[in-house]
């Protein structure tokens, strides 16, 4: 049981950090661009909110299997298959939780607006300097919301994990899968315990988010 919990939190942590690095530039671009491609990119970003996890998992499985480009490169570099591995789970989770990182950040960046950036530029801050010295601190709550939601959403995923990760203890067997397995085998007391832990965790996380602010919600959820 603890193995599954530890794995779940490891997956959520790695996913959140990865998405922080990938989602921040994407959210910044979406918040600032006047490109005509923006609606299309926004729609793509929001897709995981509406697609059944099985659909996302199915395509990820196609991309990551050892015969596909991504899967074969991974195999030749690491010697391991991407499907049914922890690395594969991270990639799937990054795709699945993308809107939970990008949307709150995009709203936060839009709320900062142009004025503080112009002020920073007038004080000789380069755009990158201004981003870290002005935008990030002014968007702190947006970052917090985005990270907490991404983390929590990754903890709660099931379908995508089942499709690309399967059920390998210590490697891909996260809490949600473990609960499913316990129920299948009629081990209700274990299922009860794990479920209660997730319920409590989710409540605490959302309580934190809603107590801190209501300003940067996920819009399509």
């Amino acid at each position: 049981m603890w193995e599954a919990i530890a794995l779940t939190f490891e997956l959520a942590t790695v996913t959140t950090v990865s998405l922080l690095l990938l989602g921040t530039p994407l959210a910044w671009w979406l918040a600032r661009t006047s490109s005509r491609a923006r609606p299309a990119v926004e729609a793509l970003t929001a897709m995981p909110l509406v697609l059944p996890p099985t659909v996302l998992g199915f395509y990820l499985l196609l991309v990551m299997n050892p015969a596909a480009p991504l899967g074969s490169v991974w195999l030749s570099v690491t010697g391991e298959t991407l499907t049914f591995s922890f690395a594969g789970l991270v990639i799937a989770s990054v795709a699945y939780s993308l809107p939970f990182m990008v949307q709150p950040l995009q709203s936060a960046f839009q709320a900062v607006g142009q004025a503080p950036l112009e002020a920073a530029a007038s004080l000789r801050a380069s755009p990158l300097d201004a981003f870290f010295s002005v935008v990030v601190p002014l968007s702190a709550r947006g970052f917090l919301t985005a990270c907490v939601l991404t983390f929590a959403h990754t903890v709660g995923e099931f379908g995508v994990v089942l499709m690309v990760g399967g059920n390998i203890p210590g490697e891909t067997k996260v809490v949600s899968i473990a609960i499913y397995e316990h129920v299948e085998m009629l081990r209700y007391s274990e299922a009860h315990l794990l479920s209660a832990i997730l319920v409590a965790f989710s409540f605490v996380v959302l309580l934190v988010v809603y107590s801190l602010n209501r300003r940067f919600p996920v819009r399509v959820a």
């Binding site: 004025a115 503080p116 112009e118 002020a119 920073a120 530029a121 007038s122 000789r124 801050a125 380069s126 755009p127 300097d129 201004a130 002005v134 601190p137 002014l138 702190a140």
Partner: peptide, 21 residues
């Protein structure tokens, strides 16, 4: 020259002080 590279200071009508400081 981009704004941050121009040797000029600008005082905005609305002051634009940074609220996080």
């Amino acid at each position: 020259l981009p704004p941050h590279a121009r040797p000029v200071g600008y005082v905005f009508q609305d002051a634009r002080l940074f609220t996080h400081r």
